[in-house]
Amino acid sequence: MADHRIDISGLSAFYGAFRAVEDVNLTIEPGSITAFIGPSGCGKSTVLRSLNRMHETIPGARTEGKVLLGGQDIYDRSVDPVAVRRAIGMVFQRANPFPTMSIYDNVASGLRLNGVTKRGVLDEVVETSLRSANLWNEVSGRLGSPGAGLSGGQQQRLCIARAIAVKPQVLLMDEPCSALDPISTLAIEDLMIQLKTSYTIVIVTHNMQQAARVSDNTAFFTVEGVGTPGRLVETGPTRRIFESPSVKRTEEYIAGRFG
């Protein structure tokens, strides 16, 4: 497996003049699941969105610092943000299949828009992606029907299939289950554990149990108050963070959520 390690050093993210996150330093191991947890407004989603340069698509937003993917800084001047996003896929909080496209076209969209048109190649990728997303058995008979017609959990798995169809190295997931029922949530969690053998996964979640169930490593972010930047408080193996956090804030947060 190629080196998908992500090294974040001195990362700050801004919305206009407001510094939303300050000085994040973190290493994300390849082939693992890393969970970002913390209270609302702590900047965990912003950090996640900085890892594939999606943050800067919001008008006025920018970052400082370095994010190395396999040793190469994705914020280097010579780097193309579009290529970064191809290498690092993303799944969003709300399932967002393209409403004008069928299930098949949704999964094929990334390849098609990048210039792949051969039917045989597309067919194969659509099938393997849907299989990888544990959705193939449910939709193989109706690939031509609209993606928006699926249930919420199926739509989210469709979005995962769409994200992995372009063969990224890393998969970023921004609260992918927050809009789903418990059964769909479990299906997605199973899927994440299967996928981590092939992809480095980073997930933002509000759900402590979910972080404990699926992640190998956990990074805890917090924020002191409105108008101050979020910070990374501590990071380590999930078990250790949950059982014996070294920082008081982490313990309080986790205890509060469990209590």
């Binding site: 594939n52 579009v82 896929g89 969003f92 969209s109």
Partner: peptide, 15 residues
């Protein structure tokens, strides 16, 4: 048009 759709596309490495 929801911003989600634009993000989904941009995040796939589409210009």
């Amino acid at each position: 048009v929801s911003r989600d759709l634009r993000e989904a596309s941009l995040a796939m490495g589409i210009g």
